[in-house]
């Protein structure tokens, strides 16, 4: 890891996307915000990578770095982002310009994106059908009639009720759940290899959320598409993800299979977060175990391990001075000096 010369050649064949030491900084008047501070992860073809973390940990900004759609205020991002979609071509996304042809093609054709608030992605003045048709006409070269058929087919695929009628509906005429379905239809319209979903169910009701999660799972297995699923809800990530990365203050602190994260976490932050969630049928006594203190503001990230002021395992002299390295245990990565000592010790909560 951390090797800048890594290129497309040595990306294993099952890899779809690889992030290598990505940094995104915001130079603000109050100081430098290291919103993404050395993030490395990969996504294999057809898998669901869940990304969890508290608000402000950098989940969305990482996703936008992949799409090259960072806010204008951000300093030029650093690090390598390599992407190899179905067509076998390899793109160094980190080297592409925000508005370059190649990047626009990647965004339109190979990576779809859905957000928490569908209204930000859907145009309020066009029908959802028109918006889907425009994308498929542009990227798949269909004529109007075929594009409309494709739009209806896509809406049916995302289980929109009455697709023949609602293809002509404006976004504001739809309910929150239906809007989210429309946005998913738009995002998958060109058979992308990767779907980035940034908290797509946070604003929805639990029953609608369950429907959307079910839909995404179906689409994913049917279309062989990979998903990066960003959320701060551990229940949702347990439901949909194959692997999970946990973020804290701009860094990934732990990545593992979903079972290892939930039953064999090796990072004190992951462990503490999981303990603080009330779960059904688990009597945790009257008090929830909490993480002391609060997330530091982004201008004053603690030195060493960023989690050290709140960590019950912190060791003075080590944790507050040295940035912990990424420790690898098979398929599990944990960014803690003492990760090896936590093996299975905390797996108690089942």
């Amino acid at each position: 890891m951390g090797n800048k010369t890594m290129t497309n050649q040595n990306m294993p064949p099952e890899r779809l996307l690889e992030l290598d030491d990505v940094h995104v900084h915001f130079p603000l008047r109050e100081g430098l915000v290291k919103a993404v501070n050395g993030v490395s992860y990969h996504v294999n073809k057809g898998e669901v990578l869940g990304i969890v973390g508290e608000s402000g940990s950098g989940k969305s900004i990482t996703a936008r770095a992949i799409m090259r759609l960072l806010p204008k205020r951000a300093a030029a991002p650093e690090g390598g982002i390599t992407f190899r979609p179905r067509n076998g071509e390899t793109y160094e996304l980190s080297a592409l310009g925000r508005n370059s042809r190649a990047m626009r093609q990647v965004r339109g054709q190979h990576i779809g994106m859905i957000f928490q608030e569908p209204m930000t992605a859907l145009s309020p003045v066009h029908t959802i059908g028109a918006q889907i048709m425009r994308t498929v006409q542009l990227h798949m070269g269909l004529n109007r009639k075929a594009a409309r058929e494709r739009a209806i087919e896509l809406l049916a695929k995302v289980q929109m009720p009455r697709p023949n009628q609602l293809v002509d509906a404006f976004p504001h005429q739809l309910s929150g759940g239906m809007r989210q379905r429309a946005m998913i239809a738009l995002a998958i319209s060109c058979n992308p290899s990767l779907l980035i979903a940034d908290e797509p169910t946070t604003a929805l009701d639990v029953t609608t959320e369950a429907q959307i999660l079910e839909l995404l799972k179906e689409l994913q297995s049917e279309m062989g598409m990979a998903i990066i699923f960003i959320t701060h809800n551990f229940g949702v990530v347990a439901d949909i993800a194959d692997r999970v990365s946990v973020m804290y203050l701009g860094k990934i602190v732990e990545t593992a299979t979903v079972d290892d994260i939930f039953y064999a976490a090796k990072h004190p932050y992951t462990q503490a977060l999981l303990r603080s969630i009330p779960r059904l049928g688990v009597d945790q006594g009257r008090r929830l175990p909490t993480i002391p203190g609060m997330v530091p503001d982004p201008f004053s990230v603690p030195p060493g391990c960023a989690f050290n002021p709140r960590c019950t395992h912190a060791v003075a002299g080590i944790c507050d001075t040295q940035v912990p390295p990424e420790k690898i245990f098979g398929s599990q990565m944990s960014r803690c000096h003492f990760a090896d000592q936590f093996v299975a010790a905390e797996a108690a909560h089942v």
């Binding site: 369950a210 347990a238 059904l280």
Partner: peptide, 15 residues
């Protein structure tokens, strides 16, 4: 019953 079934739990094996 439906509401409870809908809520995903932070328990992948259980889910």
């Amino acid at each position: 019953e439906a509401l409870m079934a809908a809520v995903p739990q932070p328990d992948p094996r259980g889910n």
